[in-house]
Design a protein around this nucleic acid. Sequence first.
DNA 1: TTTAGCACTCACTGAGGGAGAGTGCTATTA
DNA 2: TAATAGCACTCTCCCTCAGTGAGTGCTAAA
Lengths: 341, 341
Amino acid sequence: MDERKKSVLHAIIKDYISTGEPVGSRVVAKKYDLGVSPATIRNEMSDLEELGYIEQPHTSAGRMPSEKGYRYYVDNLMEKEKLTSKEEEYIHYGLMEQINEMDSFMRKCCQMLSKITNYAALVFIPREESGRLEKLQLIPVDNNQLLVVVISHTGVLRHRLIRLPERLSPTAISRLESMLQARLKDIEMEKLDKNLLIEAFAAANRRQEGFSHLLEFMDKNFLQQDGEKVFFSGALNILSHPEFKDPDKLRDVLSVFEEDFQVKNLLAAAEGKGVKIVIGSEILKEEMKNCSMIVSPYELEGEKGGTIGVLGPIRMSYPKTVSFVEYIARELSQLMTGRGS
Amino acid sequence: MDERKKSVLHAIIKDYISTGEPVGSRVVAKKYDLGVSPATIRNEMSDLEELGYIEQPHTSAGRMPSEKGYRYYVDNLMEKEKLTSKEEEYIHYGLMEQINEMDSFMRKCCQMLSKITNYAALVFIPREESGRLEKLQLIPVDNNQLLVVVISHTGVLRHRLIRLPERLSPTAISRLESMLQARLKDIEMEKLDKNLLIEAFAAANRRQEGFSHLLEFMDKNFLQQDGEKVFFSGALNILSHPEFKDPDKLRDVLSVFEEDFQVKNLLAAAEGKGVKIVIGSEILKEEMKNCSMIVSPYELEGEKGGTIGVLGPIRMSYPKTVSFVEYIARELSQLMTGRGS
DNA sequence: TTTAGCACTCACTGAGGGAGAGTGCTATTA
DNA sequence: TAATAGCACTCTCCCTCAGTGAGTGCTAAA
């Protein structure tokens, strides 16, 4: 792969990304003046095709990059395009607006990313590490209801209202509370489900406490947190890219957005360190073979957080989009650090 | 509008709904034998067109219903199509699977509706009436954090973790607790925002309690519940209807699903008693002029709940879809009654 | 009032042909 | 030996044109 071949490949990919049309030898020679004639370019193109970096939709059409070509491009040829300070400001102040509440902030990041890139944006928020149980408190609401509040040593809180089969006296409640507290303290919050409570109640029963009928009123994931979350935004941006004018392809792509876990899998598969570009069939999902993803991890409170990224057509404006994803992931990490709540 | 005109209109609409093609006089005469010749039908059609119930895409094409035609159809001609007992069972047991948790149950209803009708389904859950404050409790989590729990007389619960600027002694906390409790008891939960707390703290300050610096750590909608929620499902079903093969129309419709509040407005506009059918431009949203909606209110715990409905092309299978919406709204109301939590 | 007959309209389809873009090959040049 | 110019060839795209078929509206007859 000599220098000239690289230049030709680079020119073809740049042109194809901006026009969407197969690019011919004449255009390469003229627009990206490499100082040689179209004929020479043709020879180089012929070689590049043999090497698998470009392909022809049909004889007598220009060339367009293959997946391998894109791969080579993002790995070796592409120069990231820096954001202008205007863009950075726009993003920064846009995100600041929603800084108060985690969920809406994440949503905002997602919207911002989709809006500014004009691709679909995805955000994955992992299950939060909630630590060990620190405190359990029972608060009587009225004669029929009892509020169970559980707090972990990291400050994560869960609560649940349960119905009481009968009135419990304040002393009975506080006895139950200290029994449970003693029994469950320091246990992993993740393990806090009904089975564990059954055990705890069984132990209490051995001391004739007789609370076990309470169990009937708790369901299986008693205090289990929902955990993982996925946001996406701008799914419709796909409509504006001509490669998805075919309804079947469109359906393929959009169908993934119908189910959260699919989006999650998508992002999970691309996990890694730093910005990562996944091209076409490298996304191991048949429906996505016409797409590329650019994803980046982000941090929460200085620790590994989730993943944020965009999904667009393979013919994506990589240099700019990479910078956007990178910048927003960094902003997100910074803004989510040291703010509490 | 004599009987024969009605029959012709009915036939045209039925045929058009099932085929999507403009229907000609020959087809009406043959398939829906009215005992007259195509020529007679043609005369009737000519009249119906003059009356505005049907229209022609171009001369020499068959006729198709106008919005007015559909309106007349759903009001006067249509017979609801009963569900088979198989369908009822399928829905019933499908919904039962998710009965435990309100949110996922609503989501399930929505999915069920979209799946079984093959249109897009929408569910609106209104802000819950949460009643008056019954009990306020402060639970220290650690030296830096305080959990505020608020319970209404109807049993609705909200909580919030706040950071403390400094350590507070248990007695200080319980003093604060009883002060707030006394001050805020019986207040409408809806009004519970920061302004109210400022007042409460101000009152406390007059007695030199000095907790007002806590205020800096609360944000504006301190204990405000998010309230309204919107689910939708099966937006992609629209893709399978040929009237949306035009990307612009498709975009119009799908864009509404990008923002919750738009979906909410859509449903809100169609509120009423019983199943309601909204046709084409009756939906007062330009983007939706090619769609119809069938919506129904549902009940929560015997009281007015939210709205559930489907959105599809104007050429919708009304008789069946109405029954589906009706049945699911009824199931939903019944299953959401008398289960607590 | 209904029907049969008939001329007319219009969308759709497929064939045919020209234009244009681009290639591959070959012979020539530096 | 590498680069170039020339040229024939290929293939898509677009336009036109005629044929077909579905369906209508009108008129005259039953």
